[in-house]
Design a binder for these strands. Sequence first.
DNA 1: CTGTTAGCGCGTTCAC
DNA 2: GTGAACGCGCTAACAG
Lengths: 325, 325
Amino acid sequence: MKRTTIKDIAIAVGVNPSTISRALNDHPDVSPEMKEKVKQVAEILHYVPNLTAVNLKSKKTKTIGLILPVISKFFIPNIINGITSVVNKRGYRLVILTSDDHLEKEMEHIKMCCHTQMDGIIISLTNQTKNLDHLKLATDFDIPIVVFDKTIPQRKFSTITIDDAKAAGQCVQYLIDKNCKHIVGVFGNKNLAISENRAEGMLDALLQNKNILHHLVYANNMLDAKIQIDELLKTQATIDGIFCMSDEVLTGASAALYAQEKLFSIITTSISDGELIGFRIPEIAYIKHDGEKMGVVAANQLFTEIENEGKSDPVFLQLETEFID
Amino acid sequence: MKRTTIKDIAIAVGVNPSTISRALNDHPDVSPEMKEKVKQVAEILHYVPNLTAVNLKSKKTKTIGLILPVISKFFIPNIINGITSVVNKRGYRLVILTSDDHLEKEMEHIKMCCHTQMDGIIISLTNQTKNLDHLKLATDFDIPIVVFDKTIPQRKFSTITIDDAKAAGQCVQYLIDKNCKHIVGVFGNKNLAISENRAEGMLDALLQNKNILHHLVYANNMLDAKIQIDELLKTQATIDGIFCMSDEVLTGASAALYAQEKLFSIITTSISDGELIGFRIPEIAYIKHDGEKMGVVAANQLFTEIENEGKSDPVFLQLETEFID
DNA sequence: CTGTTAGCGCGTTCAC
DNA sequence: GTGAACGCGCTAACAG
């Protein structure tokens, strides 16, 4: 079916297209009667404005790009929910791109975002990303960027994280308070600042307690965590506490604990969105890391930068987290 | 920074804009030397084509809309992965919309997809959707639609599901074979054909075995499943088998089983993507329902319809599933 | 092989 | 208050 355009309405009403345009946009100097008539005819003809044409004129697309390293069950759905809620509320659309943890793909997606004139970009970095040079392209095009969760140390782009070191520290302190003497920390990919920071938080907490044995395990995914922890439990019989930096490694570690029949004997704690904690056996104490909230904050920050048209300085937010016992 | 356009290159090279356009698009009748030169200058000036303008001309947007009832951890991430992989491979973009299980929102999103000239739509229906009249709008605009997973009986739009009844039947048969005499089936929202079909599959399997007690439980989410099963286990002491129609209700049911200390005594089976099964305690036999594959198939079907420009008849695919023990 | 012209659908600056 | 004309950036038809 052919879409009806402003022109069609113009012919139907018997006036000039520009009048239709003005009437439809409630321009002040078009007569109320004309507006009324135009709107009626538009309704009858099922007129819908051609967004592409509007975009071409306005040089905006009302579209936000979200670049994720991978779309896993953990954390990501919450993030997407948080972002879409504010993006849609503002009448924008969200395009999701996956970098598959490949730097090249990340670069390509940045390019594509620029080429398609996204109005803003929200990104969580790959394991491989060592610097943010490729993001400069977006800056050249005046496209604001907000980085969240997985990031690297930098001061150029707004960043939303939690206080990773503090959260990890709290968890480990909990284990210490529970009298654990041999603690394992399970982290994600070693390249990520998020793993690094949380590992440091763990080590800081241990600094005051020199007599506590500990291991740091870096796992790339759920299965990797399971395998490594399983191995470790076999060789280290005295382990009595485990701190997991995410739901993903927690799930893997739990499976290993189950296999070794130590689910109930080894105290576990984690940074988690809490959704699956009620179903974990046994339940554990954890730092609640709310992905949806993080998504909302990231999106809101992006919109303030969009509205300020690049005149705003980057902000570096660390969201509050809560220890739930 | 001002974006460089075809015009800028034209001035730089000293030829007409249309020549630039042809050169850039490798049009046959432009000289190789010219092509070379144009491409060099384009490179130097950091030229990137304005997709919005291209879209306006071509009346295509190279964008696919994905409408989901909700973005949960279960199943959805796999679906998104499957779809994005083929969509991106084809040079298209994916816009994700959430209906929050509200029919009105679903309608709005359909409208928005039409207004923004999406080239195709992939949709999983809300609990409330009773007919597909609102999808007709897309048909009017010649936008192909593929429905997957959550659907209702209809013959107008291509549909990708699994053989729900068969899968459920296999699971329940497994319980019967294990000598269960009192079986609970846990399903999703009762309005959905997917719940209905799987429940029927269960009842069919029970038909041959009249002496088996059974209950059907319809749960709206993980927590709801937990609460209902918990209650049921308290009043029905003889329950010895549970069939869960999804990972979501399985997670809830498992929590209830744990609370009632019956994780090991009641045989459980489920339709599942299998990702969390290795971490479920104890592990269970299940029908593997591969969300990623379903996403890939749905997207591919959509593209064949896009390429056939509405001249193709709808197809109704039921993907193969495998019982894993 | 390359230049000219026109138009995609819309909004906006001029005129009248 | 409304019409005419132009341009956003690109492509395609028509010339030459």
